[in-house]
Amino acid sequence: MDWSYILGHMNYWLFTVMMMTGLYIVIARGNLVKKIVGLNIFQTAVFMFYISIGKVSGGTVPIFPTDMEIDPEVTYSNPLPHVLILTAIVVGIATTSLALALVVRIHEEYDTIEEDDILEIETRIAREENRAHGGAMGGRA
């Protein structure tokens, strides 16, 4: 493992660190809005990772001169990851907005957006229902 290998892979490792920070927020934090922020950080890190695969050293932005006089000497970076990630960004904001709408709806129903509190309320409701209907269902009341 020499120096140029480390330099050539450093980007990938740093993107991984960012991805894992986002994943940690999603798993370890109980607040639903913060979970979505973590998901966004994770997602953005994946986008940058993907784009960095398309980078060609010495290349430039994949846009031709406006007069379309193309110089064959110029190398362009790979446009395909850019296209895919453009689509992914827009789909990402669509899913984020849906998730935020769900959070608003959950807050309306439970009056909290903390996972622990929601779990507590759910358990209480389940216990009450069990007490009310458990005997009739033939189970343990």
């Binding site: 398309g54 850019h82 453009l86 827009v90 904001i93």
Partner: peptide, 13 residues
Amino acid sequence: LDAADVAFTEAAV
């Protein structure tokens, strides 16, 4: 990383 279009979209969205 040479992704001007993606940078625009990311900044806006």
